[in-house]
């Protein structure tokens, strides 16, 4: 069992924690009436702080389920999850909500922006939800959107924005409250290659720092070069985790090679 799960989550240990995500023997079964669907069969996974980890694998293998557990949205059937030293599966529903509000940013394939709100208001939601005054929250959101080249679109509603622009609003929403962990599910699936690249670049630039981490579920091998490590998953298990030694600035060809080659071996690098 992980040491981190026994550590009390004080601010000091959070800041010092070398490990962002630690999963031990996670299983998950969905129960609908009499029907039990086992989805995860003992997942071990570790992501150090300061890294961007990718989770890849065939459709239906349990990627979304796994990151939902890591983000504190679903509760595992068994196993241990710690996020920055915090043992999250034993939190109450209310504590989990608070944990997400304070520590997690989300980026979804479908963006999930509120259509009635402007770009800047959408991006400000996590701050507003945390009780920050509207003006302050929208000012912070506007600043971040400007860094994402969205300064000219602050007042537009989602339907007035392109897919890439909407996803940048979603990125801003995921980052505005400076969460320790950003969770992305297929963030580029609805975007063209260039736009997808840009989104990942921005994400790396803003969300990665020594005490923060990003986990990305994706099918999109065009963006594998952005990963620090890539966990391959199939049928509810992690097959292997490869360290992507060549980060995006080391050249696309190396990244592509790294992504397509499976090394096998230890799950913990």
């Amino acid at each position: 069992m992980s040491q981190a799960s026994q550590t009390s989550p004080t601010a000091a240990t959070l800041a010092a924690a070398p490990v962002a995500i630690e999963c031990r023997a996670i299983t998950k079964e969905f129960v609908n009436g009499d029907m039990v669907t086992p989805v995860l069969h003992g997942v071990d996974l570790e992501l150090p702080a300061g890294e961007m980890g990718f989770l890849v694998g065939p459709s239906g293998c349990g990627k979304t389920t796994l990151i939902s557990i890591i983000a504190g949205i679903l509760t595992p059937t068994s196993g241990e999850v710690t996020v920055f030293g915090r043992d999250i599966q034993h939190l109450s529903a209310g504590q989990k909500t608070r944990f997400r509000r304070e520590n997690v940013g989300f980026i979804f394939q479908q963006y999930n922006l509120l259509p009635a709100l402007s770009a800047v208001e959408n991006a400000a939601i996590p701050l507003i939800a945390a009780g920050r005054p509207y003006r302050e929250a929208t000012a912070a959101a506007a600043e971040l959107l400007s860094r994402l080249d969205m300064g000219d679109h602050l007042k537009k509603q989602p339907r007035q924005l392109s897919g890439g622009q909407q996803q940048r609003v979603a990125v801003a929403r995921a980052l505005v409250h400076q969460p320790k962990l950003v969770v992305c599910d297929e963030p580029t699936a609805a975007l063209d290659a260039h736009t997808g690249h840009r989104v990942l670049e921005l994400l790396r630039a803003i969300a990665i720092s020594p005490d923060r981490a990003v986990i990305v579920v994706t099918h999109d091998n065009r963006i594998f070069e952005f990963a620090d490590r890539i966990a391959h998953m199939d049928d509810g298990r992690i097959l292997d985790i490869e360290r992507n030694g060549h980060q995006r600035n080391s050249g696309a060809s190396a990244a592509t090679q790294a992504a397509t080659t499976r090394h096998g071996g230890s799950h913990h690098v």
């Binding site: 209310g94 909500t97 944990f99 997400r100 989300f106 945390a130």
Partner: peptide, 12 residues
């Protein structure tokens, strides 16, 4: 779905 997103983000 919008409420779901708000809940995911951490709205109680």
């Amino acid at each position: 779905k919008q409420y779901g997103a708000l809940k995911a983000i951490g709205v109680s």
